[in-house]
Simulated assay, not measured.
Amino acid sequence: MSTSVRRSVRRRTIGAGLAAVALAAGAVSCSKGGEESPKMTPAAAVAKAAKNTEDITSFRYRMKGKVPEQGRVEAEASMRIKPSVAMSMKMTVPDQGTKGTMEIRLVDKAMYIGGNADLAKEMDGKTWIKFDMSALGDKNLGATTPGAGQADQNPATESTFLTGAKNVKKVGTETVDGVKTTHYSGTVTVADLKASFKDEAKAVREAREKSLQQYEKLGVDKLAMDMWVDGENHTKQFRMQGAADKGPLDMTVTFLDYNKPVSVTAPPAKDTADLAEMMKGLQDG
């Protein structure tokens, strides 16, 4: 494989795949329908749903929207948070044609990107690329592949960002995927979010600060958020919109279930090309 082809593969797979994973998602779960207590204010209802994210161990979700530089993104995924992080996602980037369809797996601190016929042609028949996240560490990962350093954290933290808004309001009641929900909205700045983290427990604060970093790297200063909360005070759906340095961010995540078993396996070694070895080969060359 030529050096130019390898560099092209590296840019496309990492840029499209891992950036989408980082943005993939952020809220919590779905549950039975209903409405919040009539005595609960919008801010209190949002805060209660955010608190419930701390009990999430796994979930399935769909996402659809626009990601800076990549354009439209559609995906469905399963993710386990505890006892160890694992994820399986099938993603399509429609604006990239056949090259924009792929599968992403995160297991044992390694990211695998595959399921693309065009990629296999360029990889001497290999259908997966392995990216060893543990070898680089969060700091280097973040510098090499935007958002990859956040892939091993609980993505439910991003749905809690609406708690930092000063203008949370109830929009009304709506049915989402057959579940009756209460729709809330608000606008929150990065500065307000950071200020709101100070009142949280250390572990919660650190998780939220880490999640916020990816938006700061994108150049997002303010987020318009919508949140749909079900009758058991879990987030059924959320939407984030913001202006980034390289284009608009507009992502909606809908949650299908939570706290059910999620099992993810690594692709067969014979079908996998190790990106670290490819990069080393380029450096040696």
Rank of each mutant, 00 (worst) to 15 (best):
111 M>C: 15
133 M>E: 13
149 G>H: 03
179 V>N: 06
123 M>T: 15
183 H>C: 14
132 D>E: 14
142 G>R: 09
174 E>A: 14
165 A>P: 07
132 D>I: 01
142 G>D: 14
186 G>M: 02
122 E>V: 15
181 T>H: 00
148 A>R: 02
146 P>K: 12
170 K>Y: 02
147 G>C: 07
189 T>A: 04
162 L>F: 12
131 F>I: 11
160 T>R: 07
118 D>P: 05
147 G>F: 03
137 G>H: 07
125 G>D: 02
163 T>S: 12
152 D>G: 08
148 A>T: 01
172 G>A: 10
172 G>Y: 00
183 H>K: 10
155 P>Q: 10
122 E>N: 13
190 V>G: 04
170 K>R: 13
124 D>S: 15
185 S>E: 13
175 T>F: 00
156 A>N: 07
182 T>C: 07
191 A>D: 15
106 L>I: 13
126 K>W: 03
173 T>I: 08
191 A>E: 15
120 A>Q: 06
152 D>N: 12
179 V>Y: 01
183 H>A: 13
112 Y>K: 09
168 V>A: 09
186 G>V: 01
179 V>R: 01
162 L>I: 11
116 N>F: 09
190 V>C: 04
115 G>S: 11
156 A>C: 13
193 L>I: 06
193 L>M: 15
146 P>Y: 05
166 K>C: 05
158 E>I: 10
142 G>A: 11
114 G>C: 08
192 D>N: 09
184 Y>C: 09
169 K>S: 15
147 G>Y: 02
184 Y>P: 08
173 T>E: 11
175 T>S: 13
190 V>N: 11
152 D>M: 14
147 G>M: 03
147 G>T: 03
115 G>D: 08
151 A>R: 02
181 T>P: 01
168 V>P: 10
106 L>M: 11
152 D>L: 14
112 Y>C: 07
106 L>K: 04
134 S>R: 12
129 I>C: 08
166 K>G: 15
180 K>G: 14
176 V>K: 01
138 D>K: 11
149 G>F: 05
191 A>L: 03
148 A>F: 07
190 V>W: 01
162 L>N: 10
189 T>V: 02
192 D>L: 00
143 A>R: 11
189 T>K: 03
135 A>R: 14
122 E>W: 09
171 V>F: 06
165 A>V: 04
128 W>I: 04
170 K>S: 15
175 T>Y: 00
134 S>T: 00
129 I>H: 03
175 T>G: 06
169 K>P: 09
155 P>C: 07
150 Q>L: 12
134 S>C: 01
110 A>Y: 00
118 D>E: 15
166 K>W: 06
121 K>W: 00
117 A>Y: 00
184 Y>L: 06
178 G>A: 09
115 G>K: 05
111 M>S: 14
148 A>Y: 04
121 K>L: 13
128 W>N: 08
161 F>D: 07
157 T>H: 07
125 G>T: 08
192 D>A: 12
178 G>K: 03
170 K>G: 11
151 A>T: 09
107 V>D: 06
184 Y>M: 06
189 T>R: 03
141 L>C: 10
118 D>L: 14
193 L>S: 10
178 G>L: 05
115 G>T: 09
137 G>E: 10
193 L>D: 12
141 L>Q: 12
123 M>Y: 04
149 G>K: 02
138 D>V: 11
